[in-house]
């Protein structure tokens, strides 16, 4: 075999290792990816069927939830909004944590991580590709949920203005824009979960630990946020602005909290990812 002047083998270039598409297919072949995405598509249909059962009689229960349900069946936009609203509290968190926390930790637990590093895929590149693909899948999950809900809701309930309990109805055109602005904000606020899960996934070899840890931190933060006695400290909690998307239902849309929420999410995510890269490029991979 001839001696190559460059350091690597013929055809090897660090920037070509682990192409994004290869990682996309690596993840796509996994059952958990398929299940998570499938469930996101299924959820709106389950909700839709559940609503069909509830049409018979009007319960006296009343309250905020009732108005949510009433609004949910008032049109496709509202149905999609309802599906989003019921998912943001837990389901989306878990799905994003799954995609972002499991991606490195599962390779470590299978033992395939050391072979990728021995290819060698540069460590920073490995993380970057994994992060980008995980974020891509998270976004895909969110979009799957919204688009399925939108289509299913529109087919069942029709194309009507977006109604809300806090403001006047918004015409379907601008309503669709609002809906996607909400999706955009949710995507940004999920960056915190993505950051936490990714960091934990790099620190531990146990995929469950990373996913569960991120979800636990999120829940803990949500609980602390309920305690008003904490005062301004709550502004530092990563979940404090998680409900700010509701401002987009107001007319005109209220964006001040969205901006603060985006700052919080971006700052936390950057911090977590920075730590993850810093740690991963230095640590001994022993798994």
């Amino acid at each position: 075999m001839s001696v190559t002047t460059s350091a690597g083998a013929t055809g090897y270039r660090p920037s070509r290792t682990l192409p994004i598409w290869a990682e996309v297919r690596r993840q796509a072949s996994r059952r958990r990816t398929q299940l998570a995405l499938g469930f996101m598509a299924l959820l709106p249909l389950i909700v839709l069927i559940a609503f069909e059962f509830g049409t018979g009689e009007d319960d006296e229960s009343g309250g905020a939830f009732d108005s949510l349900v009433q609004l949910a069946t008032s049109g496709g936009l509202n149905f999609a909004l309802f599906c989003l609203a019921v998912s943001t509290g837990f389901l989306l968190i878990v799905v994003v944590a799954l995609f972002c926390g499991d991606t490195v930790a599962s390779e470590a637990s299978w033992g395939s991580l050391r072979y990728l590093l021995a290819v060698p895929v540069p460590r920073a590149r490995l993380l970057a590709v994994k992060l980008i693909v995980a974020l891509g899948y998270s976004a895909l999950a969110l979009l799957t949920l919204v688009v399925t809900a939108l289509i299913a809701g529109t087919l069942r309930y029709g194309w009507h203005p977006l109604g809300s309990t806090v403001a006047a109805e918004i015409a379907p055109g601008p309503g669709l824009l609002r809906l996607f602005a909400i999706v955009g904000y949710l995507a940004v606020s999920m960056l915190v979960v993505a950051g936490l899960a990714f960091l934990l996934g790099v620190l531990t070899d146990a995929p469950l630990g990373a996913v569960g840890g991120a979800v636990m931190i999120w829940i803990l933060s949500s609980i602390l946020d309920q305690i008003t006695a904490l005062g301004t400290i709550r502004y530092l909690l990563p979940t404090h602005f998680s409900d700010a998307w509701q401002g987009l239902l107001s007319t005109p849309a209220q964006s001040d909290d969205l901006v603060k929420g985006a700052i919080s999410a971006v700052a936390y995510a950057t911090l977590c990812w920075g730590l993850a890269f810093w740690r991963f490029t230095r640590k001994d991979v022993t798994s």
Binding site: T4, S6, A7, G8, A9, Y12, P14, R114, Y115, L117, A118, V119, P120, V121, P122, R123, T281
Partner: peptide
């Protein structure tokens, strides 16, 4: 870690 020359090494570790 990540030296390009590792591409000339095959490994089972």
């Amino acid at each position: 870690p990540g030296s390009p020359v590792l591409s000339r090494v095959g490994a089972l570790v």
